[in-house]
Computed example of a mutant assay.
Amino acid sequence: MIFVFKTSVKTKKQIKAFKPQIDNILPKAKWNFDLEDCDKILRIESEENIVHEIQKLLTIHSFYCEELD
């Protein structure tokens, strides 16, 4: 499944702050940010439903995160 999130992440430095935690939550998943998109999109390809975990992680790091349909 592919999950798409609108976020408030703006820089690669910000991504590096929580990258180890995403890798820990999603060890087999592929994920990336599109920081050039106006919605700062986070795309995750995972066999598991990880919506709640990702939203919680980004919220802990003070970022906005909303799953898009």
Rank of each mutant, 00 (worst) to 15 (best):
M1F: 13
I2D: 14
I2G: 03
I2Q: 15
F3E: 11
F3V: 04
F5W: 05
F5Y: 07
K6D: 09
K6V: 03
K6I: 02
T7D: 06
S8K: 01
V9P: 01
K10F: 08
K12C: 05
Q14I: 02
Q14V: 02
K16C: 02
K16F: 11
F18W: 12
F18P: 00
F18S: 04
P20T: 04
P20S: 05
Q21V: 02
Q21W: 08
Q21P: 00
I22Q: 02
I22A: 04
D23Y: 09
D23P: 00
D23Q: 13
D23V: 03
D23L: 06
N24C: 09
N24E: 15
L26E: 10
P27Q: 13
A29G: 04
K30A: 08
K30L: 08
K30M: 09
W31L: 04
F33D: 01
F33P: 00
D34H: 10
D34V: 02
E36L: 10
D37W: 12
D37N: 15
C38P: 00
C38I: 13
D39F: 06
D39Y: 11
D39P: 00
L42Q: 04
R43G: 00
R43D: 01
E45N: 10
S46T: 05
E48N: 07
N49M: 04
I50G: 00
E53H: 09
I54A: 01
Q55Y: 07
Q55E: 14
K56T: 08
L57Y: 09
L57P: 01
L57E: 01
L58A: 05
T59Y: 15
T59Q: 13
I60V: 12
I60L: 14
H61G: 01
S62H: 15
F63R: 03
F63N: 01
Y64F: 11
C65Y: 07
E66R: 12
E66L: 08
E67W: 09
E67R: 12
L68Y: 07
D69E: 12
